[in-house]
Nucleic acid binder design. Structure first.
Lengths: 119, 119
DNA sequence: TCGGTAACCGAAAAATTATTCGGTATTGAG
DNA sequence: CTCAATACCGAATAATTTTTCGGTTACCGA
C-alpha cells in the first residue's frame, strides 16, 4: 500500500473533494454510471483511453468512499453492477458543470482566440 | 519543455476543464484571488503547504489559459497583481461548489461513519 | 478437458506532477 | 556597496499516479 509523504490539508474542502473524485478517470466513471453503463465490462468498453485496470482501481476507491455501491450476483456469467449512492448523486451536478465548462471553453478557444491560447 | 506521451481526449469537457484548473494548487489560487489575495507574495503567505515555486508556475499557466490576468507596475517594491478574467469568474461557482461538497463530506464522515470510511 | 467471458488483483515500470535548491533582476534604504 | 523585498525562472530530484503485464477465480458450453 502506498504511503503518502507530503502532508495534506484535510480542513480544505477542495483538497478533500479532489481526493474523493479528482483522479484521472473518476469523473468519467461517475458520468458513465449516470449514463447507464453500470457493469465494469461496459465501462471498460465505454471509456476507451483508460485501461481496465485503472478503472477497476478507481471504482474500488469510489466504493470505499461511499460514492458508488456494488451489487454482485454469483451466476454465470459473473454480473456486477455499480450504482451511485445518495452521496454519489450529490457529486453529479458538479461533474456536469465541470463537463459543460470544459466544452464551453473549447468553443471559446475555437471562436475567440484561434492561436493565442492553445490548451 | 515537457512533452506528453499518453494521448488525451480533447473532445471530453471533463478532460479539458481538469487540464485548465485541475492541478493541485490551481483551485486554491483562484479561491485566494477571489478572497482578495492578489499579489504573489500574499498568495505565498496565504497558501501554506505549497512552495512559492509551484504557485508561480500554476499562476503562469492560469494566465496562459486566460483565467487570470496580470498587472505589473515597475515601481518599488515590485508590485504584481493577478485578477480573475471574465472567463475566470465563470469557474468560481464550480470551485465554490467543490469546496462546499468537500466540507460537507467531512461532516458526513464525522457524523455518519466514524470508522467505516477513512478518507 | 479446453476455451471463453466477466471481474478482479499484485508488482514493476513508466509517465506525470510537484518540490527543492539555487539562481536572476529591479529598486530603495542604510 | 551591501542588504532586503518582490517577482520570477531552470534544472535536478522526489513524490505521486497511471499503465503494463501477467496472473487468479468462477462457471458454462462444446
Amino acid at each position: 500500500m502506498y504511503q503518502r509523504k507530503t502532508p495534506e490539508d484535510l480542513e480544505c474542502g477542495i483538497t478533500i473533494a479532489m481526493k474523493v473524485f479528482g483522479a484521472k478517470w473518476k469523473p468519467c466513471l461517475l458520468d458513465a454510471i449516470q449514463r447507464g453503463f453500470r457493469r465494469p465490462s461496459e465501462m471498460h468498453r465505454e471509456i476507451k483511453g483508460a485501461t481496465p485496470r485503472v478503472l477497476d482501481m478507481q471504482l474500488r476507491e469510489l466504493e470505499a468512499s461511499g460514492i458508488v455501491g456494488k451489487c454482485q450476483s454469483t451466476g454465470f456469467p459473473l454480473y456486477t453492477e455499480y450504482t451511485l449512492t445518495d452521496l454519489g448523486r450529490t457529486i453529479m451536478p458538479i461533474i456536469d458543470r465541470i463537463n459543460e465548462w470544459g466544452l464551453n471553453y473549447k468553443e471559446f478557444l475555437a471562436e475567440e482566440s484561434p492561436q493565442s491560447i492553445s490548451l
